[in-house]
Design a protein around this nucleic acid. Structure first.
Lengths: 342, 342
DNA sequence: GCGGTTTCTGAAAGCGGTTTCATAATATAC
DNA sequence: GTATATTATGAAACCGCTTTCAGAAACCGC
């Protein structure tokens, strides 16, 4: 009767309760009727032994892992917390665990990272920038259920995608600068080349200019890369080169920080001399002085929808091919609309 | 020769390569010598079949999961990304996956959340606020290796803990207000009652006042809870009640945002009328106007050290009982030191 | 009180790997 | 060239659970 050092197994419980392991399993899973009398005996035994089923054994037997994999480019920036919060809440609600991995700084990868050796998760949430098209294709060909975030499916495949409305919102915010504030020379800061959000924002920008018969000036398009330092450098360079502009679409809020810094250093007033607008509506936007006019992005909702989509895909085999979440204009002071205030 | 719909197993590889499954296993794990000739045959078969070992089977056989569990209170705030980034990088470097779960909004829990049913991870990183003392005790008694973050071990146990230096830094920043800026009535915003960081910051505050023979005025201690809205409300109330103060220690940077808002609304100038200091040195701190004097906290490093500590504990059975990471004063403008600038 | 259902329970066969132990193959010594 | 030490490989047990299948027990109507 020496207590075993290793933790109790289903056999121990069965022995303790005087039943077979099948019965214990049924009590645990509640999928097949078990008489009350037996069930309570088993439950007592479980409590007495402080028994917890071992996930690995379960996974092996059922060939399901009850785990969702989240594959990210890099864990950085403000959008990451709300995204994960959304994913986590849905995952948990549906009884899934959450496994996280990143592609690291090396940019999109061709291969799945180790953790997702294709059997460690029942499905994958693949964030833009974590996997190349080839990587996506390859993973898909294994039959791993997956949902893409902020990245569209390769042409010939139909992998569900959850993303946000970029183009119309950008067009709206740029048109706001044109019509309400009479801006004509609007500097556009781009995202990284392979970033689809950035691509659609640029399309929206171009469309807005076209609608108002304004020319697209190549010198008014500069790299921002959603990074405050790169954005700052681009603005500084534009100022040095004496490029004329009366407004800046920063690409995102983070880049707007750099824009603010550069303009302030040049003694230019926002919004009097230059209007500035961002995209994302992170916590930052309200804190900046003047408060940043931007586009609100429901990031947590992206996480929620993506997780739901993936779970549906896992459970039913099909899911909505495209979920486009609405974004909304948030007018604050940096465009010139309101009095500065926190 | 109909292709099986299910993915290949080690048996398929063995058959393809004309060897036994033991040999395939050995090639996969490289722990026992295998002749080059056989190894390359096996490797070819693995590639041909696009074989990937199933984690569950491995875990079951080895009773290890190569997974670290991260248990959080809630996924919110700026500190979360860098923390996770630190943990993730170390975990990956050592071949561990990362499983995430939260206690949710309901505050610390007594029980481990489902995912960590004590066998799903080889060890646990427990963040402050996710588990009650009882929950920690209980989990510990199962023999699960764990490391506490920003929370000390229950008295009689010695669970390794990784946290930051709060008290001395707070004392230093408060003394800075006293000695450099001649502040005498320093309002202190607390953290949540069970938050240890908040507790030690308060101790540092008290020590600073004591050193300079300043009285501790209960009316100068108000709730901040590291939340901008609560902080704002507390400052507004203090102003309404005409409590005199010439400086505010906000508790953290996030709360400082609320302090700024309240003071600005009351037309009080920072730092002329009131000095404000924060804690954390998040991205926000540089963006606030005036730039926030605060204490830099190496959050990513906390994640790194915690993960290292846990891995060592898992692999060797022992680890440093306490890791206290240094924090440093960051002087900017909000205390009154520098000219405002971005 | 008996045949026929309907329910509940147990035995045993996997799930897909790792690992021990025995054996076949090869190298080493003489 | 044989006896012996040394590998490399294979057979089979095992990890802890789920689930099929069949049998036992309980229920039912007549």
């Amino acid at each position: 009767m020496i207590p075993k050092s290793t933790s109790p197994t289903i056999d121990d419980v069965a022995r303790e309760a005087g039943v077979s392991i099948s019965t214990v399993s049924r009590v645990l899973n509640r999928n097949v009727p078990v008489s009350d009398k037996v069930a309570s005996k088993v439950e007592a035994a479980i409590r007495a032994l402080r028994y917890t089923p071992r996930a690995a054994a379960r996974n092996l037997a059922t060939s399901r892992t009850s785990t969702l994999g989240l594959l990210l480019a890099e864990i950085v920036g403000d959008f990451f917390s709300p995204l994960l919060r959304g994913v986590e809440s849905v995952a948990r609600e549906h009884g899934y665990d959450l496994l996280i991995s990143t592609a690291g700084r090396r940019g999109p990868q061709k291969e799945l990272p180790g953790p997702f050796g294709k059997h460690n998760a029942d499905g994958l949430l693949v964030f833009a920038g974590s996997l190349t098209d080839e990587g996506v294709r390859d993973t898909y060909s294994f039959g791993v259920p997956m949902v893409l975030l902020h990245q569209s499916s390769p042409q010939d495949l139909t992998i569900p995608c959850v993303t946000i409305e970029n183009k119309a919102a950008t067009r709206a915010i740029v048109e706001h600068l044109i019509t309400k504030h009479n801006r004509r020379k609007i500097l556009f800061l781009t995202g990284e080349p392979y970033n689809e959000d950035g691509y659609w924002r640029e399309m929206g920008y171009r469309e807005a200019l076209a609608r108002h018969d304004l020319p697209i000036e190549p010198e008014l398009i500069a790299p921002g890369h959603f990074d405050r330092h790169i954005a700052q450098a681009s603005i500084e360079q534009a100022l040095r080169e004496k490029i004329q502009f009366d407004a800046v679409f920063a690409g995102d809020d983070e880049a707007a920080v750099g824009v603010y810094a550069a303009l302030r250093a040049a003694n230019l007033n926002i919004p009097r001399d230059v209007s500035v607008v961002g995209f994302d509506d992170q916590g930052l936007a309200q804190v900046l002085q003047p408060a940043l006019t931007t586009v609100h992005v429901p990031i947590e909702q992206v996480g929620i929808e993506a997780a739901r989509c993936l779970i549906q895909l896992i459970q039913t085999g099909t899911a909505e091919p495209l979920t486009l979440l609405p974004t909304t204009l948030v007018i604050r002071s940096s465009c010139g609309c309101l009095e500065p205030s926190l």
